[in-house]
Write a protein that binds this DNA or RNA. Structure first.
Length: 198
DNA sequence: TATACGATCACCT
DNA sequence: GGTGATCGTATAC
């Protein structure tokens, strides 16, 4: 019984996945070190009709990965200095992804393995900060997240109640006309996060 | 080939 | 509230 989310998890409706990812754990293995943190905020980008989605202008070299099989990473550079991590969703040839915006309860695996120590004093509240801290860049674009190598997501340890999921407008997409009104940004309530301890 | 701008962040007033 | 950093990508020429 593995905790790694399989491809079937990603081969579903993007909005549902964006909500289901809350409380799940993003795991990054790099240079012999492993870091794990709980996903607490996401945004959904769904199809060519979503004017905020990079695929709204169709298939290009950059957006190609979003048209591919679900469960792969879509990592792009923004503003010349930051990277953003997305997970590709939906069936093949339907472009959609979920942006990982915030992580909490950050832990590092001790060298003796199978034991985690909390990392305090940092906040990963923003896609740029997440990628900087986890050393995620374009080299990880198109990585298969279902394989459990370098980067993957593990299922939540507890059930997240619907009332603990807050929906709001996506940020930084003022150009997206009516699509900017969509409540496709999802976050874990402060109360629910407090219950996860740590 | 040239240009405009962005799914951000840190720092300023 | 506002702005600069900094470069890949899309689009125009």
């Amino acid at each position: 019984m593995t905790k790694i989310l399989p491809r079937e998890f990603y081969s579903r409706n993007t909005l549902k996945i964006a909500r289901d990812l809350l409380g799940c754990f993003l795991v990054r293995e790099h240079r012999g070190k492993t870091i794990r943190a709980m996903i607490t905020e996401t945004e959904a980008y769904h199809g060519e009709d979503d004017l905020a989605c990079h695929a709204s202008r169709g298939r290009t070299p950059r957006t190609e990965v979003m048209y591919g099989a679900p469960g792969h990473a879509y990592v792009y550079m923004i503003y010349g200095m930051y990277h953003c991590l997305n997970v590709v969703t939906e069936r093949k040839d339907f472009p959609a992804a979920v942006l990982i915006r915030e992580l909490a309860n950050i832990e590092r695996m001790k060298t003796n393995k199978n034991e985690w120590e909390k990392i305090t004093g940092i906040k990963l509240d923003g896609p740029g900060k997440i990628c900087k801290f986890l050393q995620i860049d374009r080299k990880l674009n198109k990585l298969d997240l279902a394989k459990g190598e370098k980067l993957w997501i593990e299922k939540t340890a507890q059930n997240i109640a619907k009332r603990d999921i807050l929906a709001s407008k996506r940020v930084g997409i003022d150009y997206a006309q009516h699509c900017r009104e969509y409540l496709w940004r999802f976050s874990l309530s402060a109360e629910a996060l407090a219950k996860t301890g740590r």
